[in-house]
């Protein structure tokens, strides 16, 4: 079967274009439906891997440290992400803990792990074992990973509780904020650029 690595098809409307090299900060936009086709690469594999490791570290902090502390008539309490998930699991509706834990703990963790795995090999210009399933998983997980929603949720919870309790964000909160930025940088739509970056022979007229 013939393949055309110099072409790109808009995934929103099936328009076909020839790839062109882009200057830094530029993005190629579809002339028919105005979707973004691809962007100029912002960083190389080394930077990407470094950001992924940073995300891994912030992820650990976000999970270990409390996200909120509250005080109430001399009593204190704090909650980590895990506490929130297990509070749901122990409550009357156990099953609702699953989407919460998945979208805020499990899936971001999987994204970071899979990216680190493919990027370590990509540094050597190779495709990691299980590259195709890993890439498919990364694309499938992206819409379900909701660190930023959780962050806003924490803010709403702080305001809600501050009417009758003393509330303060903990270290985990700031780590979540960092993680939100890092995840958006490393695991966005451009992930499938790794297919081109690890191409055995660089395709003619690719974006490099």
């Amino acid at each position: 079967m013939k393949t055309f690595s110099d072409l790109i098809v808009c995934e929103h409307c099936d328009s076909v274009y020839r790839r062109r090299p882009l200057a830094a900060g530029e993005a190629a936009q579809c002339g028919r439906c105005a979707a973004i086709l691809y962007r100029a690469r912002r960083y190389d594999v080394d930077h990407w891997l470094a950001l992924t490791l940073a995300a891994a570290i912030t992820f650990v902090i976000a999970n270990v440290c409390p996200i909120i502390r509250i005080g109430f008539q001399g009593m204190r309490n704090d909650a980590t992400l895990w506490d929130s998930a297990s509070a749901l699991a122990q409550g009357p509706i156990t099953i609702i803990a699953a989407p919460f834990a998945l979208s805020i703990i499990v899936l971001p963790c999987a994204q970071i792990g899979l990216l680190a795995w493919v990027l370590v090999y990509a540094r050597a210009g190779r495709r990691a074992p299980g590259f195709a399933p890993a890439m498919r998983a990364l694309a499938a997980l992206r819409p379900w990973s909701m660190v930023e929603v959780c962050l806003l949720g924490i803010l709403v919870a702080v305001v809600k509780l501050s009417h009758f309790l003393q509330v303060a964000p903990g270290a985990g909160f700031w780590a979540m904020a960092g993680l939100m930025v890092l995840i958006t940088l490393i695991a966005n739509r451009d992930v499938h650029r790794l297919w081109e970056l690890t191409e055995p022979r660089p395709p003619l007229g690719a974006e490099e």
Binding site: N77, A97, S103, L161
Partner: peptide, 15 residues
């Protein structure tokens, strides 16, 4: 999903 997150966090905290 915001509301689900809010309910999870406040019910974990206020106990």
């Amino acid at each position: 999903m915001l509301d689900v997150a809010v309910v999870a966090i406040v019910s974990a905290l206020v106990r």
